[in-house]
C-alpha cells in the first residue's frame, strides 16, 4: 500500500553509461538523492543493506543495556538508562523508516533479522557482566558509533542523512553518561576501580573492531566512498576513535589493554596519533558469523518480543477496521 503516492518509486532505471555518469555528477556536486530520484540498482541495494543493518543494530543494541535497567545502582542511573534505551528504539525506527523509502518494507526487514539472514553490529553479541559494562558501552561503543555516524549526516541519500542528524543530536548524551559512569567508578573504592578497568579490558578490542575490517580487506568501501554513502574509510575512523578515546582513559587513570600502544609522530599527516597493536580479526569474523557468546540469546529475545507482540498488532488492526466501519 505504501508503494503508492509518496513512496512511489520506479526501479525500472535503465543503467546506460550516460545515466550512471549523470548520477555520479549529481553526487560529486554534493546533491542529495531523494526517494523519487532515479538511482543505480546497486546504490539502492547498498543503502538498503547498510540502513537496515544499522536499524537492526539499534534494536538489538537495546538488549545488552536493557539487561541492567532493573539493577541500575541509583534511581538517577535507572532513569538515564531507560531514556537511553528508549532512544535506541527510536533510532531503530527512524532508520527503518529511511530504509522503507528505498522500497523495502519494515516487515520484510524484521523477518530477515528474525530468520538470522540480516546482520547487526557484532558488538552486541558480547555480554554485559557488570554495571561498569554500561559505562564502557556508553563511552566506547556509543563513542565509536558516533565517529561512524557523524560523517553519515552528510551521506548522499537524503532520508538517511536526515535520520542521522537527529540520531547524532540524541546520541551525544549517551556517550557522556557512559563516561560519567566510568569516571564515578574510577574515582571510587578499589573494587569499583577494578570493575571499571575490567569492563574497559573486555570492551576495548570489540570497540576497535566496530569500524570493520582494515581498508585493505574491506570490499564495499571504494564504491561507497565514490557514491558518498561513506565519507571515511574504516581505518580512518578507527584512527579518529583511538586518538579521542586514549586521552579520555588517561584522564580517569584507566589503562588501555594494549601493550603495543604507541604515539606515532607520522600519523594523521604528521600531526601525530596513536598506533595500536594487532587486532584479532579471527575473533571479529567468528562473532560476525554468529559466534559471539550472546548471539543466540539476542535473536531469541527479539523473536520472543515479536511473537509476544502479535496479539497486540492483531488487536490494533481489528480495532482500526471496526472504527472505520
Amino acid at each position: 500500500m505504501y508503494t503508492q503516492g509518496l513512496l512511489d518509486h520506479s526501479e525500472e532505471t535503465e543503467e546506460t553509461p550516460e545515466f550512471l555518469a549523470a548520477f555520479q555528477k549529481r553526487i560529486d556536486q554534493e546533491e542529495k538523492i531523494e526517494p523519487h530520484d532515479p538511482m543505480p540498482r546497486a546504490y539502492r541495494k547498498t543503502l538498503i543493506r547498510q540502513i537496515s543493518q544499522h536499524a537492526h543494530s539499534e534494536i538489538v543494541g537495546m538488549l545488552p543495556e536493557g539487561n541492567w535497567i532493573t539493577r541500575a545502582p541509583t534511581l538517577k542511573r535507572k532513569a538515564v538508562l531507560l531514556a537511553k534505551v528508549q532512544d535506541e528504539g527510536g533510532h531503530g525506527l527512524y532508520l527503518y523508516a529511511a530504509a522503507e523509502t528505498l522500497g523495502i518494507s519494515r516487515l520484510e526487514m524484521t523477518e530477515q533479522l528474525l530468520k538470522g539472514e540480516a546482520k547487526y553490529s557484532s558488538i552486541f553479541n558480547y555480554p554485559t557482566l557488570t554495571w561498569a559494562d554500561i559505562g564502557a558501552i556508553g563511552w566506547l561503543v556509543d563513542g565509536a558509533a558516533i565517529m561512524n555516524q557523524i560523517p553519515l549526516c552528510r551521506c548522499s541519500y537524503g532520508p538517511y542523512a536526515r535520520a542521522m542528524i537527529k540520531i547524532c543530536k540524541e546520541e551525544s548524551f549517551h556517550q557522556r553518561q557512559g563516561y560519567e559512569v566510568m569516571m564515578t567508578l574510577a574515582e571510587g573504592s578499589k573494587e569499583q576501580r577494578d570493575m571499571a578497568q575490567d569492563a574497559l579490558n573486555r570492551w576495548w578490542w570489540p570497540s576497535l573492531m566496530m569500524f570493520g575490517p582494515p581498508d585493505t580487506e574491506s570490499s564495499n568501501t571504494d564504491q561507497s566512498m565514490k557514491w558518498k554513502i561513506k565519507r571515511f574509510t574504516n581505518d580512518q575512523l578507527r584512527q579518529k576513535f583511538l586518538d579521542a578515546a586514549i586521552p579520555q582513559a588517561k584522564r580517569i587513570n584507566l589503562t588501555i589493554p594494549d601493550k603495543n600502544l604507541k604515539w606515532n609522530k607520522k600519523l594523521n599527516n604528521g600531526r601525530g596519533g596513536y598506533s595500536h597493536g594487532p587486532i584479532d580479526w579471527e575473533e571479529f569474523w567468528r562473532v560476525v558469523k554468529g559466534g559471539g557468546p550472546m548471539a543466540r540469546d539476542r535473536l531469541r529475545a527479539r523473536k520472543k518480543a515479536w511473537d509476544g507482540g502479535k496479539w497486540v498488532r492483531d488487536a490494533a488492526t481489528a480495532y482500526a477496521r471496526k472504527v472505520k466501519r
Binding site: 505504501y2 536526515r162 537527529k166 488492526t317 480495532y319
Partner: peptide
C-alpha cells in the same frame, strides 16, 4: 504490514509543520 504514516511536527508557533519521518500504526 500496518499502515505507514508520514509525520509532520510544528516546532513552535509561527513556524510551519515540517516532515520528520514516518511511523507504522493501525489507526
Amino acid at each position: 504490514e500496518t499502515l505507514l504514516w508520514e509525520v509532520f511536527v510544528r516546532s513552535k508557533n509561527g513556524l510551519s509543520h515540517k516532515h520528520v519521518g514516518s511511523i507504522h500504526a493501525s489507526d
